[in-house]
Design a protein around this nucleic acid. Structure first.
Length: 113
DNA sequence: AATGTGACATACC
DNA sequence: TGGTATGCCACAT
């Protein structure tokens, strides 16, 4: 059995680290998967602290509901996020993911079923 | 306890 | 099309 979540953030990190390479998800999807659809902001907030909790978290695979790389500004370099995604095969144009639905990885569908 | 915060989501202008 | 405003909630101080 899994140990109880220590905090909302920890769950966020767990899910983010489970995101397959070449896939992306949204803050809202993660929040919803954790049972707090309205806490989408917390997901982003968690990512802000993710580097001090676990630097291995692929935060670049998490974007907003629009597939827009809103969090790129928080990376070491703004271009790092889209560059990492491109390397993984995700097409990006104007800081936005092309065919977002195709790359979208929903934990609710992938983990809860 | 209270206040501040924020990498969202949605609505409105 | 993009800026502004509000709701929303868990964490930090």
């Amino acid at each position: 059995m899994k140990k109880a979540k220590e905090s909302f953030f920890d769950d966020v990190y767990e899910v983010v680290k489970l995101i397959p390479k070449g896939r992306v998800t949204s803050y809202g999807a993660i929040a919803k998967y954790l049972g707090a659809a309205k806490s989408s902001r917390m997901v982003g907030y968690a990512m802000n602290s993710c580097h001090q909790v676990d630097a291995t978290i692929p935060a670049h695979r998490v974007v907003n509901r629009n597939g827009l790389l809103t969090g790129k500004h928080h990376f070491s370099d703004p271009n790092l996020m889209e560059d990492l995604l491109k390397i993984e095969g995700v097409e990006i144009k104007q800081d936005k993911i092309i065919n977002f639905e195709k790359f979208f990885w929903d934990p609710i569908n992938e983990l809860n079923m």
